[in-house]
């Protein structure tokens, strides 16, 4: 097995997880803020929609995504009309799928972090002259720092482990949609157990290292606070 046989799917998986996590943080910051602080009647509906990917089988998400992202589907047509790329069997399509698949794993920790910010901290900022957006960035974000880190790690890790959705909408194009989990699956299908072992072990070790790093940073943060 050559190095590129490991590296290409690994790099793709890491890139997918990183892009997805960054986009999810940007999407979920306002969404979770609203969920945490709004008393709107729409809130339970939005909360249920956000939580759906936890419950649904990846094949269900993948199936609907396939319909939406296909060239005749609404998102596929939109992308084509805007001169964008094809969305099925492509990296951009995988990113969209991953965002939906990992949404609750980022939105929920953020929502918890934002809900635990005491109202008087935000009120204090308001009386000291901070406008709403200023309060969000200067008070809410720093106070929710640990929740943001948790959300980022969960989103990243959950995207790393994604399989069913990728299988449905990505196919297996090397360097484009052939992620680690797909590569392992195909090697097993072809009875290439040696290659599957190496790829699986790589995933196991890198996932462990990632989580270990996060918990070490978390611990150091806690220690410096005491």
């Amino acid at each position: 097995m050559t190095v590129s046989e490991i590296w290409i799917p690994l790099a793709l998986t890491l890139k997918l997880a990183a892009v997805t996590t960054i986009l999810l943080l940007l999407i979920c910051a306002p969404l979770s803020w609203w969920l945490a602080r709004s008393s709107s009647r729409l809130r339970p509906i939005v909360e249920a929609v956000v939580a759906l990917p936890i419950v649904l089988p990846p094949s269900v998400i993948g199936f609907y995504l396939l319909i939406c992202l296909a060239p005749q589907g609404p998102l596929g047509q939109l992308s084509a009309a805007l001169g964008g790329p094809a969305l099925v069997f492509s990296f951009p399509g995988l990113v969209i799928g991953s965002i939906i698949y990992s949404l609750p794993f980022v939105a929920q920790p953020l929502q918890n972090a934002f809900s635990s910010i005491r109202q008087d901290q935000l009120d204090a900022a308001a009386t000291l002259g901070a406008a709403p957006l200023d309060r969000f960035f200067s008070v809410a974000i720093p106070l929710a720092k640990r929740g943001i880190l948790t959300a980022a790690v969960l989103g990243f890790a959950h995207t790393l482990g994604e399989f069913g959705v990728v299988l449905m909408i990505g196919g297996s194009i090397p360097g484009e949609t052939r992620t680690m989990s797909i590569a392992i699956y195909e090697n097993v299908e072809m009875l290439e157990y040696g290659k599957a072992h190496i790829l699986a072990a790589t995933m196991l070790v890198s996932s462990f290292l990632l989580l270990f790093l996060v918990y070490t940073i978390n611990r150091a943060n806690n220690a410096s606070k005491r």
């Binding site: 005491r118 008087d120 901290q121 009120d123 204090a124 900022a125 720093p142 106070l143």
Partner: peptide, 10 residues
């Protein structure tokens, strides 16, 4: 505020 409401991160 009654409980000061200092910014704990600063």
């Amino acid at each position: 505020f009654q409980h000061a409401a200092l910014f704990e991160h600063l």
